[in-house]
Amino acid sequence: MAATPKSYGLIAEFLTPADAMHAAEKVRDAGFRKWDVFTPFPVHGMDQAMGIKNSKVGYIAFAGGVTGYTSGMLMIWWMNAVDYPIMIGGKPMFSPFGAFPPCYELTILLGAFGSLFGMLFLNRLPRLHHPLLKHRRFALASHDRFFIVIETADPKYSETETRKLLESMGSKNIEVVEE
């Protein structure tokens, strides 16, 4: 059976993180692109086994932090020194030292927004529907099983060859996921 538009991919179940990781290394070396490993917790070393590059979420968080700091400084300077200056105790209208604590907090606040929302953006979440979430055994991916899914959208995908590859890795349970 060729890949029908109705099937999403092949799902292979593994019992231990080591099995899933060795399998992932082979899938990576076979040159697949549209595939993923699903685990109940982050498995250390899996990024290398899958050939995933370092996450870009740091750049987004950094941009958030810089925005927080500069907008805080500009806000305080403009409010207290430009728009409505009030002389208090002969102190300067604006001093970066007095303005530092709120700006420090804003750096952290916007940096934190950057990291959470950046993570969600990079992961394309929230997502209300996913073909895997309908799959009968997939609920175990949050319990104690490890899954490798190779999507039909991958150019190297072939119903028979890919299944053979997954079988050769020792998966006892391989099924087709409906779209």
Binding site: D36, F38, M46, S115, M119, N123, F138, A141
Partner: peptide, 13 residues
């Protein structure tokens, strides 16, 4: 979903 591509960004975040 517990996707490892998601975990990668998640752990960094």
């Amino acid at each position: 979903t517990g996707s490892n591509r998601h975990w990668s960004n998640y752990e960094k975040a």
